[in-house]
């Protein structure tokens, strides 16, 4: 069996969902999995990762975040303990460190897997390319194998692991790029890439004064809030909400597209959602081609009763 290291993420002692995903995938592939958690309050995540099967969990404090130091810490663990497969989330951090880690280990990286399996001792992944207009199946020729997995696209499973914490030191003092300031954004809602439900608004909402309609619908469902590039470019909401080729990629269970026509660039960011609901008054809008359920009507007529129906159904 290959030795697997799952890279997790933690911030202020709160484990990111992606950590459970990489550990669960590692357990599924390898039978045994260790994990590494670097971040503020990292040791708080050890017991939780043990519930997904992690045996040894390497923990280290790193604040503020530093990609060079983070990658080096992972590389040092891989070199000293000898891992065959390193699994990272294809999150902001995973994108920032995976190729650094692979290159330092003189190996390659395959990224953004929507499917992952083991053939012999080789990891095989499937990933979307060309904005989701095609998929490619890939393997690495070299070892160790570094792979990133698409957030929210892989099941989380329970398994009993030893959950033994091992503290490592992370040293950012010699880093050539350093964070000097951080401004939190996005508020209190669930992060878009972790959300089970995403409600997203497009040009059909007509103006910034109507964006709260999207937010209210999202809050009723405990959902994340997204938007199309047109809405962001028009300044109707913050650009961190943009979903699509030049924004975030999301894979929720349910994606509710409100007043969104479904341009290919937008579909690139939400095409791997499990179910899609489209509300648009144009029956020819391309979004209806991918929608599980479509409502052809004026969103301003649909959303208010939809909110009432949801309140009644959810008892809120």
């Amino acid at each position: 069996m290959p030795k697997i290291l799952a890279v997790g993420e933690i911030s202020n002692g709160v484990l990111k969902k992606a950590s459970r995903e990489t550990t669960s995938v590692g357990k599924r592939l390898g039978g045994a999995v260790d994990a590494i958690l670097l971040g503020s309050g990292a040791s708080a995540g050890v017991a939780e990762l043990a519930k997904h099967g992690a045996d040894t969990v390497y923990v280290g404090e790193i604040s503020p975040y530093n990609g060079e130091a983070y990658a080096k810490a992972v590389v040092d663990v891989v070199k000293s303990k000898g891992y065959d497969i390193i699994i990272l989330p294809h999150s902001w951090i995973g994108r920032d460190i995976s190729a650094r880690i692979a290159t330092a280990l003189n190996t390659g990286v395959i990224s953004d897997a929507t499917e992952i399996s083991l053939e012999g001792d080789r990891v095989k992944i499937r990933k979307p390319v060309y904005s989701g207009k095609a998929f490619v199946n890939l393997k690495l020729k070299t070892s160790p194998q570094v792979v990133t997995i698409r957030p929210n696209a892989h099941p989380i499973s329970e398994a009993a692991g030893a959950g033994k914490a091992e503290t490592i030191t992370v040293d950012a003092s010699s880093a050539k790029a350093k964070e000097v300031k951080f401004e939190a954004k996005g508020g209190t809602r669930v992060p878009l890439t972790e959300a089970d439900i995403v409600v997203s608004g497009g040009r059909g909402i007509k103006g910034p004064e109507n964006f709260p309609l999207i937010e209210q619908l999202a809050d009723l469902l405990g959902a994340g809030v997204g938007a199309t590039r047109a809405v962001v470019d028009a300044g109707w909401c913050d650009h961190t909400l943009q979903i699509g080729q030049t924004g975030l990629t999301v894979s929720p269970t349910l994606y509710i597209a409100v007043g969104i026509s479904g341009a290919i660039q937008h579909m690139a960011g939400m095409g791997s959602s499990k179910y899609i609901v489209a509300i648009n008054k144009d029956p020819d809008a391309p979004i209806f081609k991918v929608a599980t359920y479509g409502i052809v009507d004026d969103l301003f007529q649909v959303v208010p009763p939809l909110k009432e129906e949801l309140k009644a159904a959810l008892g809120r």
């Binding site: 998929f135 490619v136 393997k139 599980t292 409502i295 007529q301």
Partner: peptide, 25 residues
Amino acid sequence: TKIEVLGFEPPPARPAGRIIDGADA
């Protein structure tokens, strides 16, 4: 090169959806 490309595939067709009918919104 450190990767092996096993092959490309077209995206899977999404299961057919349906338009929800009703007398009004």
